[in-house]
Amino acid sequence: MANQLTVSLSPHVHSGDSVSKNMYGVLIALIPALLCSFIYFGLGAILVTAVSVASCVFFEWAINKYMLKNSQTTICDGSAILTGVLLAFNVPSNIPLWILILGALFAIGVVKMTFGGLGCNLFNPALAGRAFLLISFPVQMTTWPVPGQAFMTVDGETAATPLALLKQMAKSDDLSAIDQMPDSLSMLIGNTGGAMGEVCELAILIGFCYMLWKGIITWHIPVSIVATVFVFAGLLHLADPLHYANPVYQVVSGGLLLGAVFMATDYVTSPMSKKGQIVYGVAIGFLTIVIRTWGAYPEGMSFAILIMNAFTPLINTYFKPKRFGEVVKK
């Protein structure tokens, strides 16, 4: 016969989905938040994002080529770009660039590539990068520029974040902190101090809706995190409204939404089954409030996610999807 036929096992069709489609889908969902950060923090934000992305992509390429001697290039799948953007979102826009590059090296070099690259890492690279920077350079990492002053130089004024104020409130009887806090609405649109990507909650919600619509993520993790934070913070608030902020405030402040939507849902480091994802989300929400309320750091989201990343394999072992026919058996 003239042409040779191809033989393979079924199925013979594919959904057309691909790794890079998912990665770029997340990047598209990040665009609103990115634009907001440019608006609020101006040139600094653009510069930080660009440097972060470029260094993440460069490190991945270099490690692949010179250390792993992989001929296959993985930088086109968009995962390194995504790590770069998320890392940028987690730092103040006035961070010294050399610190940022160090963070990118840690995120890609140590957290991602040492485990074998895409799909093998135990921890979310961007978050681990942030945690590394936060511990190594606490001052630079918590000096927040005041938003709304586009095209400011990096040496501008700094502002306390709402979460720092919350902490102050919980720790002391100095109630003056309350007066300094912005209202919930301005928190929603992002008119507060904070890391680049985490300030505008509305933009993050738009991104969340986009990812749900595209089927990139499911609702389980973000919703269970937010619901847990809301309920747990609500209970604390009911018990002692003076020291514990109201739950709406907890939800819209800091990196909670950013973490819940973009970080905790990271494919590689989150559990596989729906049940497991809810357990994971609830645990993250709980840990976040614990750290925020009683811990040393004002923000607990990134640590909560990293802690739960470590538990993901365990969750995968114990929380299996519901097998077909199981209902009948019981």
């Binding site: 040779q4 036929l5 191809t6 033989v7 393979s8 096992l9």
Partner: peptide, 19 residues
């Protein structure tokens, strides 16, 4: 002579079940 192209996992066991 080759008659068809096997386009599956590079594993004899799997190829053996294919054809």
């Amino acid at each position: 002579p080759r008659t068809v192209i096997y386009d599956g996992v590079k594993s004899c066991r799997i190829a053996n079940t294919t054809c």
